[in-house]
C-alpha cells in the first residue's frame, strides 16, 4: 500500500514536471503588472487628438516632467498650430538661451531661443542627469509612448499606479519607489502627480488622473505628431480604393460573364458504316 502511494506521488510529480506550470524567463514582478486598457478617445482611428488636452498636457510636462525629463525631439515650431499660438510659442522659446554660431573671433555667444530651436534638456548630458538622480537616468520622453510596451496605457498606469505604501512582502531597494507597473517594481522616479499640482488655464480640475491623461495624450502627440493627418489620409485612401475595388469587381464580372455562362457541347463526328458491316450486307444481298 505504501509502495503504491509512493508510486502515485512520483507519477504525479513526473506529470507536473512535464505538463506543469510554464517556465518564464522573468518572474511576474520582473515583468511588471500589465497595464489596464483605458478607453482613450484619441487612439480611435477616426478621432484626432483633443488639442485642448494636448495644451494642458504640455503645461503638465513644462511644470512637472521637464525638471528631470528632456523632450529633445520637439522644436517650438511644432507647438504652433497644435497647442499654442505663434506668439505664445515665440515667448516660450525666448525664455531659454541657445548657443550662437561662432562670431568673427570664434567666440560662441548666447542668444534667446527661436521657434526653430528644440526644447532644452534639463541636464547638460546623461552623466549630469545620472549624477543628479541617484544614478538613474530619466529617459527622454519624445518617443516614450512608442518605446514602451502598452504605450499610453502603460504610462498612464505608471503615473497613477503608485500605492500609498508598498504591499507587504515587497522588497524596495534603497532610493527606489514601489510601482507595480514598472518592470522590476523598483522605480527611481517617485510619484509626482498629486491633485491640484498644476493650475489649468481653462479651468479643468487638475486631478491626478486628469493630469496623467493630459500628459500621456501630449506624449502620444510628441511621439506621433503626424497621427491626425495620417488618420484623415487613411480614411480618404480607404474611400477611394473601395470605389476602385467595386469597379474592378464589376469589370471582372463583365469580362467573364460570356466565358462563365457559355455552354460547351460535344458533337461526336459522324462515323461511316464499318467495312465489315458492308461486307455482311453484301453477303445478305447475294443470298
Amino acid at each position: 500500500m505504501a509502495l503504491m502511494a509512493a508510486g502515485v506521488v512520483m507519477a504525479a510529480g513526473g506529470a507536473f514536471l512535464i505538463f506543469g506550470r510554464d517556465v518564464h524567463a522573468m518572474t511576474p514582478a520582473e515583468e511588471g503588472l500589465h497595464p489596464t486598457q483605458f478607453p482613450w478617445e484619441h487612439t480611435k482611428w477616426h478621432k484626432t487628438y483633443d488639442h485642448a488636452s494636448l495644451r494642458r498636457g504640455f503645461q503638465v510636462y513644462r511644470e512637472v516632467c521637464a525638471s528631470c525629463h528632456s523632450l529633445s525631439r520637439i522644436p517650438y515650431r511644432t507647438l504652433v498650430g497644435n497647442m499654442m499660438t505663434v506668439d505664445e510659442a515665440k515667448a516660450l522659446a525666448e525664455e531659454n538661451e541657445y548657443d550662437t554660431d561662432p562670431n568673427d573671433e570664434g567666440e560662441i555667444e548666447k542668444r534667446p531661443g527661436k521657434l526653430s530651436d528644440y526644447i532644452p534638456s534639463p541636464y547638460k548630458n546623461d552623466e549630469a542627469a545620472r549624477a543628479a538622480n541617484n544614478g538613474a537616468l530619466p529617459p527622454d520622453l519624445s518617443l516614450m509612448v512608442k518605446a514602451r510596451h502598452g504605450g499610453v496605457n502603460y504610462i498612464f498606469s505608471l503615473l497613477t499606479g503608485y500605492p500609498e505604501e508598498p504591499p507587504a512582502g515587497a522588497t524596495v531597494p534603497d532610493g527606489l519607489n514601489f510601482n507595480p507597473y514598472f518592470p522590476g517594481t523598483g522605480i527611481a522616479m517617485a510619484r509626482v502627480l498629486f491633485d491640484g499640482l498644476v493650475e489649468y488655464e481653462d479651468g479643468t480640475p487638475a486631478t491626478t488622473s486628469q493630469m496623467a491623461k493630459d500628459v500621456v495624450e501630449f506624449l502620444n502627440w510628441s511621439a506621433e505628431p503626424e497621427a491626425d493627418e495620417r488618420k484623415k489620409m487613411g480614411w480618404k485612401v480607404i474611400a477611394v480604393t473601395s470605389v476602385l475595388l467595386g469597379l474592378s469587381i464589376w469589370v471582372k464580372k463583365y469580362k467573364w460573364a460570356p466565358i462563365k455562362s457559355r455552354k460547351i457541347v460535344y458533337n461526336p463526328p459522324v462515323v461511316g458504316t464499318p467495312v465489315s458491316k458492308l461486307k455482311q450486307m453484301e453477303n445478305q444481298k447475294a443470298k
Binding site: H46, K47, D50, H51, G81, N82, T85, W235, K236
Partner: peptide, 20 residues
Amino acid sequence: STVLWDKINQGRQWKDIKSR
C-alpha cells in the same frame, strides 16, 4: 472629406479651440 472629418472631430482640433 475635410467637412466630414471636422464634423466627427468637432471641438477637438486646434482650429476649434484657437479662438480662445
